[in-house]
Design a protein around this nucleic acid. Structure first.
Length: 825
RNA sequence: GCCCGGGUGGCGGAAUUGGCAGACGCACGGGACUCAAAAUCCCGCGAUCGCAAGGUCAUGUGGGUUCAACUCCCACCCCGGGCACCA
C-alpha cells in the first residue's frame, strides 16, 4: 500500500495550479465577482511565522470555497515594503533597501506558495516600486490641490532613538511604538492631512458597513465625537471673550474659575496685563517640557498657576472668575480652555490645593452622598438635579442642558458645538525608505506640486541611510537633487526632503490590485467599477484605528474627486473581519527575542503543508488569540493519513450506506456554514467526525487488515467526490491527489461546491431526552415526529422513569419535539 | 478610570443561542498486533461515592429568574485588548 507522502504530492499540485492559471481573476467576467482581501504583508527579513499564516490560510479556505461556488474571485497579494525595519537593516549592513526588499519578498513569495494559497500572483504589487508609488504621490498632490494637505509648525512627537517624528498613533503611552524609547516634544514643520474634515463621515458611514461591533466601537472612540457648546466668558477690560467648549453646560452655575492650556493664545496676547508673568512663563515652559507620559499620569498631583491681574465673568451668574493655567488642559482639544467647578475631579483637586472657591450645582440621587457633595467633601461628576442655578433649579441635567444653551444663545453668549478627538494626520517622516513627498518650495511662490508628468519623484541613491541629527531626512544632504528651479518663476527652489509614512502606500493598494499595471491612472475606472468595493477584508485588530481609518478616509477622498467611480459608493470595504494572533507555547507572544518563533517551513517539511493548513484552522476560534501547540499538529496529520488510507483503494459502490449518506449531508451543511462564519475549527472537527465514522464502518465490516487491502465500504463514488470537494479548501493538495488517484476528471479545485439534501438532514430515529424535574433520567429512541401524547406514553412506560415517578402525579410536562420531554413532579 | 473581549477536564477547545456539559484533537492509562519497538487499531479518560446498576457534585465566585442556566438578570473576582487629563 502506498503511504501518504505530502512532500511529493504538494509541490506537484502547486506547480500544476499556478501553471493552469486557475486562480487568476478575470476582469468583466460574467460570473458574479467577489473581492476577497487580506492585509498585505510587510516583508521582513525574518520571513513568515506560523502566526502570519493563519489569516492567509483562513482566507484561502474562503477563496477556494467561493470559487467553487461559481464566483469570479479576486484574491490578490502584494507587499507593503517601505518602512523602518528594512531601513534599519540597510543602515546596519550597508545594503541598499531595494535589494533587501527584493530578497525578502522573494522569500515571502516562496513561503506563501508553499502553503498552497490560491492567490492571483499576476496582480502582485509592491509599494516601493516607482510605478506604484507614482500614484501614492499623485494622491498626495490631489490632497494638496484640494486643500487637504498643509504644512504647519507644530509640537511633534519625537523619538530620540529612532530620530523620527511619530504620529500620535505611533506613540503608545508616551513611548515609541517601534523602539520603546520615551517620546519627546519637538517643534517642527510638518505636512499634515486634514482627516478631521472627514470626521463626521467616517463616523456616520460606519452604519453602512458590516464590521464587527468592537471594530466600529474602536473607530468611534478614536474619532471621539462629543456634542456640547461653546460658551463665551467675557474678560474684564478686553474686547474678546475667552471661549470654552463644554459638554456639561448644566454645571455652568457652579463655574467659579477658568483654566487655560499652557499654550493658549490669550496669555501671549495679554502678557502685559499679567502681573506675575515671569512665574507664569516659567510654569508654561516646564509644562511643555514635561513628557506626555508624565502629564497623563492621573495619579500625579495637579498643578497650576493663577494669571494675576485679569478676571473673567461667568456669563450665567455674572460673577467674577479668576483665570488659571494648568497643564491638564489640552491645547488641541476644544478651545484649549475650560471653565472649572466642583463637578470635575481635576478642577476640584486644583481648587482644593490652591484654595480657589468652589460651588456645586448638581445633586446626585443618593441622599447621603449628596450631603457630602454639597459640603464639598466629595466630587460628583455625574448628572443629577440642578440647584444653585436660578430659574433652572430642580431640572434634570439633560433637560437643563438644552434650556441653558437656549437661554445663553439668546444673549449671544453660547452656541452648540460638536468636537472631535480625532486630529489632523501628521504625514511627514524624516527618513529615507519611504515615498518622497512630491512638493517644491520657492521663496517667492510658496509650495508647489510636482507636475503629474514628472511623477514619480524617485528616491535618489544616497551614501548613508541614517536620518540626520537635526531631524532631516538623508535626502536633504543630496544638494543636486534638492535644488531645483521653481516651475512658476524659474527662480531657485528646493524639493521637500521628507518622505511619507508607512500608511501612505497601504491606504489604496486594494485599488491597484484591480489594475496593477496601469500607467495612466491609479486604476482604470471601468475596472474599479467592476471589482469594487472589497467584499470581504480581513486584518488584525491592531490596524483598526490606523490603517482601517486612514484607508477609509483616503477612499472617501478619492471618491469625492471622482478617482473612484460613483457607483461604487464611499466605503471601500463591505465587510471586515479580524483574526487572532498565534502565541508561542505557554501563551506568550511569539517573538524573535524570546526565541519561540515557529517557522512554517519547518512544520511543512515535517508534516506537509496540508497538515499545517488543517492545524492552523483547527487550533481554535479564528478571531481569538491561541497558543501554538507543536504536539497538536500530529493529530491533523493523522486525520489526513486516515483519509489517504481510506480512499487509496477502489471506490466503486453505486450507493452510499444510508447512515454515511445522512452524515455526509450534515457535514456538507456544517462545513459550508462554518467557513462562511470563519468557524474553521468546528468545520475541521466535523470533517474529522465524518472520516471517523466512515473508518469505523469499514472496520466493522470485517475487512482484513492483514491483506492491507481495505475494501471500500460505505461511500459511493458520487458521495466521495462531494467529500473531497468539501475537504479541499482545507487540504487542497491531498484532495487534488485523491481526486486523480480515484480517476476523476479535471481538477478538484474546479469542481462545484456540493449542495446538501434538506430531506436527508432529518433523521428518522431520534433520541429523546427524558427529564424528571429538569434532570436527565433516561433517553429513549423513537421515530422522529412524535406528538406530545405519544412521547409521554413512551416516557412514562420506561422502567427508569417509572421508578422515579412512582405514585407521584406529573404536575406539568414540557415537551420539545424530537428532543426532550421533562416531567415535573 | 472608561470601553470592548474572555474565564468550561491535565491541555487547545465544542455545545444548533435556554434543552444530554465536555464534540473534535492533544496528552495520559489499559489492551490487540509484534521476538521487540515504532506505526496502526480497539477500550477508557471531569470529580466523587459504589463490586455494579446507579447516585451526587461540577462551566471564575455569590445570589436570582426558570420545569430546565455554560447560555438570561444582579453583584463581585481574575485574565487579555483598546483608549486614556478629551472638559
Amino acid at each position: 500500500m502506498k503511504r501518504y507522502n505530502p512532500q511529493q504530492i504538494e509541490k506537484k499540485w502547486q506547480e500544476k495550479w499556478y501553471k493552469s492559471g486557475d486562480f487568476k481573476a478575470k476582469n468583466f467576467s460574467k460570473k458574479k465577482k467577489f473581492y476577497l482581501l487580506f492585509e498585505f504583508p510587510y516583508p521582513s527579513g525574518d520571513g513568515l511565522h506560523v502566526g502570519h499564516c493563519r489569516p492567509y490560510i483562513g482566507l484561502d479556505v474562503i477563496a477556494r470555497k467561493k470559487r467553487m461556488q461559481g464566483y469570479n474571485l479576486l484574491f490578490p497579494i502584494g507587499w507593503d515594503a517601505f518602512g523602518l525595519p528594512t531601513e534599519n537593516y540597510a543602515i546596519k549592513k550597508g545594503i541598499h533597501p531595494v535589494l533587501a526588499t527584493k530578497k525578502n519578498t522573494d522569500n515571502f513569495r516562496k513561503q506563501m506558495k508553499m502553503l498552497g494559497l490560491s492567490l492571483d500572483w499576476a496582480r502582485e504589487v509592491n509599494t516601493t516600486d516607482p510605478k506604484y508609488y507614482k500614484w501614492t504621490q499623485w494622491i498626495f498632490i490631489k490632497l494638496f490641490e484640494n486643500g487637504l494637505a498643509y504644512k504647519d509648525k507644530m509640537l511633534v512627537n519625537w523619538c530620540p532613538k529612532d530620530k523620527i517624528v511619530l504620529a500620535n498613533e505611533e506613540v503608545i503611552s508616551g513611548k515609541c511604538e517601534r523602539c520603546g524609547a520615551d517620546v519627546e516634544k519637538k517643534e517642527k514643520e510638518q505636512w499634515l492631512i486634514r482627516i478631521t474634515n472627514y470626521a463626521e463621515r467616517l463616523l456616520e458611514d460606519l452604519n453602512m458597513v458590516d464590521y464587527p461591533e468592537r471594530v466600529k466601537i474602536q473607530q468611534k472612540d478614536w474619532i471621539g465625537k462629543s456634542e456640547g457648546a461653546i460658551v463665551k466668558f467675557p474678560v474684564e477690560g478686553f474686547e474678546d471673550p475667552i471661549e470654552v467648549f463644554t459638554t456639561r453646560i448644566d454645571t455652568i452655575f457652579s463655574g467659579t474659575y477658568l483654566i487655560l492650556s499652557p499654550g493658549h493664545k490669550f496669555i501671549e496676547r495679554h502678557k502685559d496685563k499679567i502681573e506675575n508673568l515671569s512665574q507664569v512663563l516659567e510654569y508654561i515652559k516646564k509644562a511643555k517640557n514635561t513628557p506626555d507620559i508624565e502629564r497623563s499620569n492621573l495619579e500625579k498631583d495637579v498643578t497650576g498657576i493663577e494669571l494675576k491681574g485679569v478676571l473673567a465673568r461667568n456669563p450665567a451668574t455674572n460673577e467674577e472668575m479668576p483665570i488659571w493655567v494648568a497643564d491638564f488642559v489640552l491645547e488641541q482639544y476644544g478651545t484649549g480652555a475650560v471653565f472649572a467647578d466642583a463637578h470635575d475631579k481635576r478642577d476640584f483637586k486644583l481648587a482644593k490645593k490652591y484654595g480657589i472657591p468652589l460651588r456645586t450645582s448638581i445633586i446626585p440621587k443618593d441622599e447621603e452622598f449628596s450631603h457630602k457633595v454639597k459640603n464639598l467633601e466629595e466630587c460628583y461628576e455625574g448628572e443629577g438635579v440642578l440647584h444653585n442655578s436660578m430659574q433652572f433649579d430642580g431640572l434634570e441635567s439633560s433637560e437643563a442642558k438644552t434650556k441653558i444653551i437656549l437661554w445663553l444663545k439668546e444673549k449671544n453668549l453660547a452656541n452648540t458645538k460638536t468636537s472631535y478627538k480625532l486630529r489632523d494626520w501628521i504625514f511627514s517622516r524624516q527618513h529615507y525608505w519611504g515615498e518622497p513627498i512630491p512638493m517644491i518650495f520657492c521663496q517667492n511662490c510658496d509650495w508647489q506640486t510636482i507636475s503629474e508628468k514628472d511623477l514619480p519623484v524617485e528616491l535618489p541613491n544616497v551614501k548613508k541611510y541614517q536620518p540626520t541629527d537635526t531631524g532631516e531626512s538623508p535626502l536633504a544632504s543630496i544638494e543636486k537633487w534638492v535644488n531645483v528651479k521653481c516651475k512658476k518663476c524659474g527662480g531657485p527652489a528646493k524639493r521637500e526632503t521628507d518622505t511619507m509614512p508607512n500608511w501612505a502606500g497601504s491606504n489604496w493598494y486594494f485599488l491597484r490590485y484591480t489594475d496593477p499595471k496601469n500607467n495612466k491612472a491609479l486604476a482604470d475606472n471601468k475596472i474599479l467599477k467592476y471589482w469594487l468595493p472589497v467584499d470581504w477584508y480581513n486584518g488584525g485588530m491592531e490596524h483598526t484605528t490606523l490603517h482601517l481609518l486612514y484607508s477609509r478616509f483616503i477612499f472617501k477622498f478619492l471618491y469625492d474627486i471622482l478617482a473612484v467611480p460613483e457607483s461604487v459608493g464611499s466605503e471601500p470595504y463591505k465587510k471586515r473581519t479580524s483574526h487572532g494572533v498565534i502565541l508561542g507555547e505557554g501563551g506568550i507572544k511569539m517573538s524573535k527575542s524570546r526565541g519561540n518563533v515557529v517557522n512554517p517551513d519547518i512544520v511543512a517539511k515535517q508534516y506537509g503543508s496540508d497538515t499545517l493548513r488543517v492545524y492552523e484552522m483547527f487550533i481554535g476560534p479564528f478571531e481569538q488569540q491561541i497558543p501554538w501547540d507543536q504536539k497538536g499538529v500530529v493529530g491533523c496529520r493523522r486525520f489526513l493519513e486516515k483519509v489517504y488510507n481510506l480512499t487509496h483503494n477502489k471506490i466503486s459502490k453505486s450507493e452510499s450506506d444510508e447512515s454515511l449518506k445522512i452524515l455526509l449531508n450534515k457535514t456538507i451543511k456544517k462545513v459550508g456554514e462554518d467557513i462562511e462564519l470563519m468557524k474553521f475549527n468546528t468545520a475541521v472537527s466535523s470533517l474529522m467526525e465524518f472520516v471517523n465514522e466512515w473508518s469505523r464502518l469499514q472496520i466493522n465490516r470485517g475487512s482484513s487488515k492483514k491483506s492491507g487491502q481495505i475494501s471500500s465500504v460505505g461511500l459511493s463514488k458520487k458521495d466521495f467526490k462531494k467529500f473531497l470537494v468539501i475537504l479541499s479548501p482545507f487540504a487542497p493538495h491531498l484532495a487534488e491527489e485523491l481526486w486523480k488517484v480515484v480517476g476523476f476528471a479535471g481538477f478538484c479545485s474546479q469542481q462545484k461546491w456540493p449542495k446538501y439534501n434538506e430531506k436527508l438532514l432529518k433523521e428518522e430515529k431520534v433520541f429523546i431526552i427524558v427529564q424528571i424535574n429538569g434532570k436527565v433520567r433516561d433517553k429513549i429512541q423513537a421515530s422522529s415526529g412524535l406528538t406530545q401524547g405519544e412521547a409521554e406514553n413512551l416516557a412514562l412506560d420506561s422502567k427508569k422513569i417509572k421508578e422515579w415517578v412512582k405514585e407521584n402525579k406529573p404536575k406539568k410536562i414540557i415537551f420539545i419535539q424530537d428532543k426532550l420531554i421533562n416531567i415535573v413532579i
